[in-house]
Amino acid sequence: MNTTSSKHLPSTTVPIIQIDAFADALFEGNPAAVMPLPHWPADELLQRIAAEKNLSETAFVVAALPEGVEAPEPGCPAYHLRWFTPAIEVDLCGHATLAAASYLLDSVHPDATRVQLWTRSGWLHVDRAGEGGPHGGFTMDLPAVPLAVTDIDPVVTAALGASATEAYAGMDLVYVLEDAATVRELAPDLAVLAGLDTRGVVVTAGGRGSEFDFVCRWFGSRAGVSEDPVTGSAFAQIAPLWAQRSGKAELVGRQLSARGGTVRCRVVDGARVELTGNCIRFSEGVAAVPGLT
């Protein structure tokens, strides 16, 4: 579909909701767009919508599951969920999952306590964690992403402007830095990071001397996101690392972006990671989508 032809296609009006995930107040955490659709259009249209929204992620949900896919819990609401940055479709996204689930549980299934989501990473589920506030919100279950030890690349070190003590390869490149202050003060060369053969770069350090067990930041220029405010999929990689080091299954992490966000983590048998956070709805409207009939 090109721009010229889209002018002549009939439009269908669908809801679009913007939600701050992992936020204890408005304008914190990570904003995601959530768009429930009657069915799946062409991938090109989904990518164009995500580029138009220009948030780090747009979450699209459809009630119909793919042929042959059955929900693990009959009777529990189940949806097909996909995530798009302004540039690509991704395999796993935490904050947009939390945002989509908060919309479904609050606005579509107010009597339900759980929603099931079929994704590129298999079945995920999100539960109500309480009545909101700093100890409420929603808890989502993600697969723990394994990390493999890798060499510290001098190109990455120069681009970050800080030395790492360790490096790992997972869904992203993960660099462990000396302390939280170093993570907070980084001003990396995003153009160099965008040229790396990886989805993104996570920098992390222990939270010694603070209320947090660990801190992090995430840079994903290659995925169309210079710096993500709060990255659930990054926590799925680094929470098991910090849990192993601390001997604690439950930890609190903080992403030190300009907006900032707190994520309560629970590592389950080293294979799953439960992430809990609040969601604050910023806006709700409609979008006239061409070609969606």
Rank of each mutant, 00 (worst) to 15 (best):
E67V: 15
R264S: 07
N30S: 03
M171P: 01
T182G: 03
E28C: 09
P77E: 08
N278E: 14
I49G: 05
L173T: 15
V289Y: 05
S6W: 01
A243N: 05
M140N: 01
P36K: 10
I88T: 15
F235K: 00
T3F: 13
D153F: 01
K53T: 12
Q244S: 15
L104S: 12
Y175H: 10
T97V: 04
T97G: 11
C216I: 08
G261H: 01
R266P: 02
T198I: 06
L37H: 10
S221D: 12
L55A: 01
W123H: 08
E70F: 12
L65K: 00
D179N: 13
V202M: 01
F214K: 00
G260V: 10
A50V: 06
V145L: 12
V61L: 14
D91M: 04
P15M: 05
T262Q: 10
L9P: 07
P240E: 03
M171Y: 12
K53L: 08
I152F: 08
R128K: 04
G261P: 07
A129P: 11
A23K: 00
V69A: 13
D91T: 14
P72I: 09
T262H: 01
A148R: 15
A223R: 02
A158P: 03
E250T: 14
A167N: 05
L173A: 12
Y79T: 09
